[in-house]
Simulated assay, not measured.
Amino acid sequence: MSGKLPEQCCSILASTGELIVIKRGERGYYRSEWNTDSREENKHIADFANRRMGITPAQLEAMVCGSMCGWDVPGAQPQFYLDMATREKSVAITGHIKHPVLSTYFPVKGHLHTYRIMGTEVHYIDLSSMPKMMLEERLGYTYCPELVTGKPMIPVTYQQGQNGSYTLHLEIGAFQSMKVEHEGYTVMVAAQVGSREIALGFSPKAPHRYATWERMPERSSSSAHRYHNGKYYEQYADAMQDCENRIAAAYARYCRTPHKNHKHKDSTGRER
């Protein structure tokens, strides 16, 4: 998920522009065999490789911080940068969004948000703006929103046509090709909030077709996902609202934990 650290990523040294590889949990870096003599070309290679791996700007910043300052500081967590993101603009849109794999487009209506995360522009739509039919389509994918200043958002890229309509494409980190089932429901959405996961499921055959749960993934086995506190709904809108309410409540608890008091610590964990 986009809130977790990847196994590795690419970056460039600020001092020399050299292309490097950073590995999760290891201090320092490795020189990349793809390194060139050009800082600009190295930056292009790093951006392309990270994008192909589905690494978000917040994950990249966390990996760089962890490699330099240690992996137990606040700045070594992607959520640290999502909490500090600044919104530059928000525009109402109508258009279509492409399924992550199928050559199918679904109508979308909502708001396109532009945030800046450590100097990088990132575009999102609200989780609730995701087309219901797209979330239910074949159920081979679990969608993973990022919590941008606490709000569940789906990262996208976009093009705007001459008629003003938008065509959206999901970023790779916005979904996982996996099928998770619980009580006959298939999980459509899984949002990571600290050590807690909030899930939204769908079952076309159940009397109540939609359900929400939560769990602590690090305490769950692969065979029994250990979802609990289930709530069941006939209407998609009611289930989505409960999912968002659960995320907001979990995020509020997450922010109250002492080690998440970012206002008093910088990214290296030093007191300000």
Results as ranks from 00 to 15, higher is better:
Ala49Thr: 03
Arg138Thr: 09
Ser90Ala: 14
Gly25Glu: 05
Asn35Leu: 03
Ile125Cys: 01
Ile55Lys: 12
Leu19Glu: 08
His96Ile: 00
Tyr29Cys: 08
Ile93Gly: 10
Pro131Thr: 14
Val122Met: 12
Ser67Arg: 10
Lys98Gln: 14
Thr104Met: 07
Thr16Trp: 02
Gly28Ala: 03
Pro100Leu: 08
Ala85His: 11
Glu41Trp: 00
Val91Leu: 11
Leu139Thr: 03
Val73His: 13
Pro145Thr: 02
Gly140Val: 06
Thr142Lys: 03
Arg52Pro: 07
Leu135His: 01
Val91Ile: 14
Cys10His: 15
Ile45Trp: 04
Trp71Met: 05
Glu26Gly: 03
Ser103Trp: 04
Met130Arg: 12
Glu136Trp: 00
Tyr141Lys: 02
Pro74Ile: 12
Gly140Ile: 10
Thr36Trp: 01
Asn42Asp: 04
Pro107Glu: 08
Ser15Gly: 01
Ile12Pro: 01
Gln79Trp: 02
Leu135Asp: 01
Gly25Gln: 09
Glu26Ile: 02
Ile93Val: 14
Ala92Asn: 04
Trp71Gly: 15
Tyr143Thr: 13
Arg27Trp: 11
Val64Leu: 09
Lys98Leu: 11
Lys23Phe: 05
Leu135Pro: 05
Pro78Lys: 09
Glu136Met: 14
Tyr141Asn: 08
Phe48Ile: 04
Asp37Pro: 03
Val64Lys: 15
Met130Cys: 15
Lys43Arg: 13
Ala85Asn: 01
Val108Tyr: 07
Pro131Ile: 09
Met133His: 02
Pro107Tyr: 09
Leu127Asp: 05
Ser103Gln: 05
Gly25Ser: 05
Gln79Ala: 09
Ser67Tyr: 06
Tyr124Gln: 01
Glu26Pro: 00
Arg24Tyr: 12
Tyr124Asn: 01
Ala14Ile: 01
Asp126Gly: 14
Glu33Arg: 11
Pro145His: 08
Arg51Trp: 05
Thr16Asn: 03
Glu41Asn: 00
Ala85Tyr: 02
Leu19Pro: 10
Ile20Thr: 02
Pro74Met: 07
Met118Glu: 13
Ser103Ala: 14
Asn42Ile: 01
Pro131Glu: 06
